[in-house]
């Protein structure tokens, strides 16, 4: 997946954006890949170009000087021809985070959330943990109180966004195609299609996957890992990165505990091994038990953000008055 434009293997779709965004960005990148037949990424969204390039470039290596972002690149052809004097080998120390680009987009999202006192929660879990049911139940209980919106990430279908919309709350579905996670750029695009949310809560339901979403900051205030008790209690140590990245673990479907061998204490202990500070909530979206604790947690986080913004504004007013 292209982490610049979020275009995945060319299959990312953000509702309301259709495919346009993916054409807008990564052209330099795409051209370089499009003759590159060995793997599938990028192909679909570059259909207009790639059908010309795909085959033509296999024999025609002479195109290569145009690539490399406008630099004089004579070195990409099969002959490795270098212009004398232009191509001295040297070392460059760059010390850059590989996901730095994603982090920049995440930073921009976070700044936007802070400016508008939006509490953004990134809900992560394995598929089938009950994220969407928990979310619809949460929305049902909160929608009269604050503005809410949802960004739904799935590889395919808009089923989840449809379930959210049935509650009356705005939802944008992001289909990542073959991609295994949402990235910050996709979220930034999706935000553009959502209504005004000042002082509200944005739920980002990530692709069901306990591995990859751990590495991608979306600009959220907190990652919330949802683990249903029908899964193994050792999931936190099987997928330690995710439980380390999360601030909260919700044990969901607790109404089923009497029928299962799930060891709640062991699960919590495992989670604290990978993340000693993780907060644990237990609930059942279906029976409603424990939902109040979860809602209370959301309320506290939301209030803190608004209070922080008031303090910041008050400080600014004080500064201006002192002028």
């Amino acid at each position: 997946m292209c982490t610049v434009c979020g275009c995945s293997e060319g299959e990312t779709r953000i509702e309301g954006h259709a495919h346009q965004h993916s054409h807008g960005h990564s052209h330099g990148h795409e051209h370089e890949h499009s003759h590159d037949h060995g793997h599938e990424h990028h192909h679909e969204h570059s259909h207009e170009h790639s059908q010309h390039h795909n085959h033509a470039h296999e024999q025609d290596e002479a195109h290569s000087h145009q690539h490399g972002d406008g630099l004089h690149d004579y070195g990409q052809g099969a002959a490795r021809a270098h212009a004398p004097g232009l191509s001295q080998s040297r070392m460059v120390q760059i010390e850059q985070d590989i996901l730095g680009k994603n982090d920049q987009y995440a930073h921009a999202n976070r700044a936007r959330f802070e400016q508008q006192s939006i509490l953004a929660l990134n809900l992560v879990s394995s598929p089938g943990s009950g994220k969407t049911t928990l979310l619809t139940e949460t929305i049902r209980r909160l929608q009269q109180r604050w503005p809410l919106a949802v960004i739904e990430g799935d590889q395919q279908t808009s089923n989840d966004a449809d379930r959210i919309r049935a509650t009356g709350v705005a939802a944008i579905q992001v289909n990542t195609g073959k991609g295994c996670h949402l990235d910050a750029h996709m979220v930034g695009h999706a935000l553009a299609s959502l209504p005004e949310l000042e002082g509200g809560v944005l739920f980002i339901e990530n692709v069901g996957n306990l591995v990859c979403p751990a590495a991608f900051d979306l600009g959220e205030a907190h990652k919330v890992a949802i683990l249903s008790v029908t899964e193994g209690e050792d999931k936190p140590i099987k997928y330690p990165d995710m439980f380390h990245a999360a601030d909260v673990m919700i044990l969901n479907k607790t109404d089923l505990l009497p029928h299962l061998d799930f060891d709640v204490d062991a699960c919590i202990e495992y989670a604290r091994r990978v993340n000693p500070d993780i907060q644990v909530l237990q609930c059942s979206a279906r029976s409603g038990e424990g939902m109040d604790d979860w809602l209370k947690w959301i309320e506290t986080q939301r209030s803190q953000r608004i209070e922080q913004r008031i303090r910041n504004l008050q400080n600014r007013i004080d500064q201006l008055q002192a002028l």
């Binding site: 070195g75 270098h82 191509s87 001295q88 080998s89 040297r90 070392m91 460059v92 120390q93 760059i94 010390e95 850059q96 985070d97 590989i98 996901l99 590495a215």
Partner: peptide
């Protein structure tokens, strides 16, 4: 860490 430390370029 997940960083690009250094490059050899021309």
């Amino acid at each position: 860490e997940m960083r690009i430390k250094e490059l050899e370029v021309e």
